[in-house]
Structure formats: structure tokens, C-alpha cells
Design a protein around this nucleic acid. Structure first.
Lengths: 199, 199
DNA sequence: GGGCATTTTGTGCAAGCGGTCAAAAAGTCG
DNA sequence: CGACTTTTTGACCGCTTGCACAAAATGCCC
């Protein structure tokens, strides 16, 4: 493996982050390679050289998104009472949306966006999304299992079923919020769900 | 308003239905005008003459989708106990997905698909989606209000909050199901939610 | 049956798309 | 310092896209 040659003039990780922001804001199809070239201030060939084609670039950005999200999720659930943390997990997308609703900023959940746009026609995208779903439910179910044992969460349903329900809710909330959300109503719905989980 | 002239050689409503099926299966961006021309067996000019441009065509299809869905929703909730009907509303997308997961058929909820793909950049699409959300929550909240009065549904949350939660869940379920769903797990989650609503 | 309004038909087009490539530039290492 | 490897640069390509338009076809109404 040769290590010589002209060094890259840009930070690959930082470029990926910026690309994530763009893909997140506009979606896959609506983001042209030219948009990326303009936004990242690097030339076409450099982009292709570093990341392969547009689809690979997007998938890498999605993976970065999920890795970041998962880290935060684990951190939020690893200590303390579970229900307030889960409440926060659900409330965050509802509140975030309020600030950026009219701006051109990121919209919804990147995993959800990918599910809607790419999954039906892209097996690799489906794998990434499915794996993210599985990891989300596993992490949340583990936390709920502990909380059931502690008497914090009701045992009227299995932790797995509860986690699955939370996945649906957070995905639905992120999606619906793109069309404009009554934040108060959304938070009331979140509270209704959290209350229903209480033992 | 002149009524004369060469009559249309195809059924406009039927063409719209077929277009809906195509848009529903592939999404907006991935469905080219050429695809529509091929599938509907009518020529380019005829399509533009009857429906205007592609975007208008799509929005008309979405509207048709919602009108159909709303009719079924109202019918399902207008009589009998509410919770079993709501359970069915949530369970249907989970089961439907099982059959068509690998085929090229319709995927997810058309409103959700539109939310993900068009809403961020299309004000008219956002209006249609937002109106659909509002109508869904109103219809469901009305049913829940009745059910709360009848003692069928818990009063620990307002009917509006419960309806909003159901909107999130059905949208999330439809979306997540596109990535492949464990039907049993999904139904367990639905049951957990329905049970939580029971008085 | 002749004029008229409308749809059909088929061609054509400008623009934007994702992607490629060859030459120039820039460090690295013997 | 000069060969080597990699990145940069910018022009370029073939393709598909959504859409427009003119001429022909068709049925209604007076």
C-alpha cells in the first residue's frame, strides 16, 4: 500500500458532514452533484475520487447520521430513569422542527427520509435502514427491560413491543413534522404515550 | 363554456387511478413522464392536455388517494366500538406490506411518501398533506371523544392528543414497513398501543 | 354538411443530470 | 533532484428529463 502522492486538500470527514447536511435538507434526488460541488467547494473529480458515485456518497452520509444518532441514544438511556429520557428522545424532533420549519435546514429523520426515497429501489439502502431500526429497538428494549424490572415501566406489554411502538412513533413524528407541526399538540401526544408506559 | 370538440379517447378518472398506482409504487421523482405514457397507453400530449404538468398530475393522484382513504376511515369508525376499528386501521398497513414487500407494488402511505419527497420544497404539496393530517386527527379525535364518553377509552389524555399519537403511529408504521417488517412484532406494538388506550 | 372546438399524434428541444477522462499540480521518497 | 503516486482541475459526454408545438384527426352543433 503506497502512502505517497499528492495529499488531499480537504478534510474528508468534514466534507461528509457538509454533504450530510445537504442531503438531509433536500433529499437524495433533489440534491444534484453540482449542488454538492458548490456547497463543499471542491471539484467534481475530487468528489468522485474520494467518495465514488453519488449513491455511495449518500449512503455514507446516512451511515454517519445513524452512528451519531445511536451514540446520543445510548448516552441518553444509559443512566437514570428511562421514561424521562425516552420522552426527550421523542420530544426533540418535535421541537427541533419548530426552529427550522421554514428555513432550508435539515428536515425530519435522515433514516426516515432514506426509507421513503431510496429503500424501495435500493437493497443496500434497505439494509442500512433495517439495521438502524433493529439497533434502535434493541437499545430501547434493553432500557425498557431494566425499567420494567425497576417498576418504572408497565409490564402490560413486552419491552420489545414497547420499543417497536416507540420506533413507529419517533419515525412518524419526524415525518409528520415536516408538514408543519403544532408543537404543543405533538408534545401532548408524546406525553400521552409516555404516561401510558408508566407502571 | 364550450362543450363541443373532439371527445377524449380515454377515461380520465381511470387514468388518474393508474397514475396513482405508479406514483405510489415508485415515488414522484423516480416516475418519469415516459413511464406514465407507457403505463397509461396514451400519448405525451394527451397527458399534458388533460392533467397539466407532471407535478399537477401527481398532486391530483395524492388527492385521490386521500379522498379514498378518508372515506374508508370514516366508514370504519362511524359505528360499533372504536378500539377494534382503530386496531384495524393500524394493522392494515402492517399486513398489506407483507404481501407486497418484494413486488413492485404500492409502498407505504401515499401521504407519508409525499411528505418525505415533496413537502420540503413544494408549498402546495405541504398544504395537501397538512390538510390530510388535520382531517385524520379530527375524524379520529371525534371517534375517541365518543368512546371516552362511552367508557371504552381512557380519559387520561385528551382525544386530540390520542388522535395525534395515532397519526404518528400509523405514519411511522407505514414508513418503517417499507424497509421490511416483522409483522408479528408490528402487531404486538399495535396491540400495546390499543391496550394503552383502553379504559 | 360545413365550421368549429378540442384532442390526438409525433417530433423535437433546451437544460440538467450523473459520470468520465486526460493533463497539470503537488507532495513523498530514493 | 528527479521519478513516482495521488489529487486537482476543468472540459466534456451521452443520456434522460420535463415540456412545447404544429399538423392531423374527430365528433358536436347550427
Amino acid at each position: 500500500m503506497a502512502r505517497t502522492g499528492r495529499p488531499r486538500a480537504f478534510d474528508k470527514d468534514q466534507a461528509l458532514e457538509q454533504a450530510l447536511l445537504l442531503f438531509w435538507s433536500r433529499g437524495y434526488g433533489a440534491t444534484s452533484v453540482q449542488d454538492l460541488v458548490d456547497a463543499l467547494a471542491l471539484d467534481r473529480g475530487s468528489l468522485y475520487g474520494a467518495f465514488g458515485d453519488k449513491r455511495n456518497f449518500y449512503l455514507a452520509a446516512v451511515q454517519l447520521y445513524w452512528d451519531t444518532y445511536e451514540r446520543q441514544l445510548v448516552a441518553a438511556l444509559e443512566s437514570g430513569p428511562v421514561l424521562p429520557a425516552l420522552r426527550e428522545v421523542l420530544a426533540t424532533p418535535a421541537r427541533t422542527q419548530e426552529h427550522t420549519s421554514d428555513a432550508g435546514g435539515p428536515q425530519g429523520c435522515m433514516i426516515g427520509n432514506t426509507t421513503a426515497e431510496l429503500v424501495p429501489q435500493d437493497a443496500e439502502a434497505r439494509d442500512i435502514v433495517a439495521r438502524s431500526h433493529a439497533r434502535f429497538t434493541r437499545i430501547v428494549a434493553d432500557a425498557l427491560r431494566r425499567a420494567q424490572a425497576d417498576g418504572e415501566v408497565t409490564q402490560t406489554a413486552t419491552p420489545e413491543a414497547q420499543a417497536q411502538l416507540l420506533l413507529f412513533t419517533v419515525q412518524g413524528l419526524s415525518l409528520v413534522s415536516r408538514a408543519g407541526l403544532d408543537t404543543t399538540a405533538a408534545l401532548a401526544a408524546v406525553d400521552a404515550l409516555i404516561d401510558a408506559l408508566r407502571a
